[in-house]
């Protein structure tokens, strides 16, 4: 255990911030998460496409819900996670927080794109339009641009410390949008239906459709965790590569 001194002090401050420890845990969890994600996706697709009956009002288009709702849910959960990680990065300088937020962003952008596209494909047959500029749809489009802006900010600033800081501030400011998305269906008149799973009186969905939906939500969740572990690991290794490359260049340049 010969660590450089700065790592020892950092370890005593943040016992769980140690990237080596993280990598050890991630390597142990990763295969299980990947396997579980594949299994849940297979079961969810089977239930959603084969077992669930067509809805009495929406017909077969109700099956779009099994990708639309989990994707939209994960898009918001992922952003909330990024905002939390960004706050931790800014306040406690946790060495993994920035990397976690950075690693999560493309996944969130992907989920947001899926929710927007599947929503349009659902809106056309059910509402008679691909798109309306109402509160729910517009705030969700804003979420997509927040993800893109966050990713672009990381790429635009060369110095990783400054890029991390700027991106973290953007993620935190953009977090305002999350409650707006959540409550947009209650605050404004909209074509979008209100919340039907998380309600005071219990879900407003029949079990035959609720179960496939919950399985798909779990599947998207575990898929996110599995990919996030790969991506954080890749970021940790990339940072180590950068440090090693710098350490190699500097003495040679000084000589």
């Amino acid at each position: 255990m010969n660590r450089p001194p700065h790592q020892i002090s950092r370890m005593s401050l943040h016992r769980f911030a140690n990237p080596t420890r993280f990598l050890r845990i991630a390597d142990a969890v990763s295969p299980w998460a990947t396997g579980l994600a594949v299994l849940l996706l297979a079961v969810g697709l089977y239930l959603g496409l084969a077992v669930a009956p067509p809805d009495y009002q929406q017909g077969q288009t109700v099956r779009i819900m099994f990708v639309h709702v989990p994707a939209a849910w994960m898009a918001m959960a992922c952003y909330s996670l990024m905002a939390l990680a960004s706050a931790i990065a800014l306040i406690w300088k946790h060495p993994l927080a920035d990397l976690s937020a950075k690693a999560a962003a493309p996944l969130g952008a992907g989920f947001t794109a899926i929710a927007l596209v599947s929503g349009a494909l659902w809106g056309q047959p059910m509402w008679g339009t691909w798109w309306v500029w109402d509160a729910r749809l517009t705030s969700f489009l804003v979420l997509f641009f927040l993800y893109l802006g966050y990713i672009a900010l990381w790429q635009a600033i060369d110095d990783p410390t400054r890029a991390a800081r700027a991106a973290a501030i953007l993620a935190l400011v953009g977090f305002v949008n999350i409650p707006i998305i959540k409550f947009s269906v209650d605050w404004w008149n909209t074509l979008h239906q209100p919340a039907s799973i998380v309600r005071m009186n219990g879900p407003a969905i029949d079990v035959s459709i609720l179960v496939p939906l919950l399985v798909m939500m779990a599947a998207f969740n575990v898929y996110f965790v599995a990919l996030l572990l790969w991506r954080i690991k890749a970021e940790i290794i990339a940072r180590r590569v950068r440090t090693l490359a710098l350490a190699r260049v500097e003495p040679e340049a000084g000589a």
């Binding site: 990708v67 992907g110 047959p125 990919l227």
Partner: peptide
């Protein structure tokens, strides 16, 4: 409407998985 929404989701999620593996 049904199949394109599943196809798009599959495309995005498989693409992200491949890109993440490759980056690692």
């Amino acid at each position: 409407f049904v199949w394109p929404s599943y196809a798009f989701a599959a495309l995005v999620m498989a693409g992200l998985a491949l890109a993440s593996r490759r980056a690692l």
